[in-house]
Simulated assay, not measured.
Amino acid sequence: MTTVAWTRTTTGTGAPDADGAGAGRVVEVADPRALAPKDARALSKPLFERLAVLEEGTPEHQYARNTLIEMNMSLVRYAAGRFRSRGDDMEDIVQVGMIGLIKAIDRFELSREVEFTTFAVPYIVGEIKRFFRDTSWAVHVPRRLQEARIELARATEELRSRLGRTPTAGELAELMNLTEAEVTEARLASNGYNSASLDAALSGDDEDGEASLADFIGQEEPALELVEDFHALAPLIAELDERDRRIIHLRFVEELTQAQIGERLGVSQMHVSRLLSRTLSRLRAGLLTAD
Rank of each mutant, 00 (worst) to 15 (best):
T2I: 13
T7R: 11
T13I: 08
G20H: 10
A23F: 08
R33P: 02
A36T: 15
R41Y: 07
A42Y: 00
A42I: 09
K45Y: 00
R50Q: 06
V53G: 03
E56P: 04
P59F: 05
R65K: 02
L68W: 07
M71V: 02
N72V: 06
S74T: 11
L75M: 11
V76G: 13
V76E: 12
S85W: 12
R86L: 15
D92G: 10
I93T: 11
G100A: 09
L101T: 01
I105P: 03
R107P: 07
E109K: 12
L110D: 06
T117G: 07
T118R: 10
F119I: 00
F119H: 04
V121H: 06
P122W: 05
P122F: 09
Y123I: 03
E127D: 13
F131I: 00
R133A: 14
R133I: 13
H140Y: 09
H140S: 13
P142A: 01
E147Y: 08
A148T: 05
E151K: 15
E151P: 03
A153P: 00
R154V: 13
R154N: 05
S161H: 15
R162M: 11
L163R: 09
L163G: 01
R165A: 14
P167V: 05
T168W: 07
T168G: 14
E171Y: 05
A173I: 03
E174C: 00
E174K: 02
L175Q: 01
M176R: 06
T179M: 08
T179Y: 03
A181W: 04
T184M: 13
E185A: 15
R187C: 06
L188Q: 10
N191H: 12
N191Y: 15
N194T: 14
D199L: 12
L202W: 13
S203V: 10
E207P: 10
E207L: 15
G209Y: 08
E210T: 09
A211R: 15
I217V: 15
I217K: 09
G218P: 03
E221D: 11
E221V: 12
E228Y: 05
E228R: 03
D229K: 03
D229W: 01
H231S: 08
A232N: 04
A234P: 09
E239W: 03
D241N: 06
E242V: 02
E242A: 06
D244Y: 04
I247C: 07
H249L: 00
R251C: 03
F252W: 10
T257A: 05
Q260W: 07
Q260G: 13
E263C: 11
S268R: 11
S268C: 02
S268L: 07
R282N: 14
L287K: 02
L288V: 08
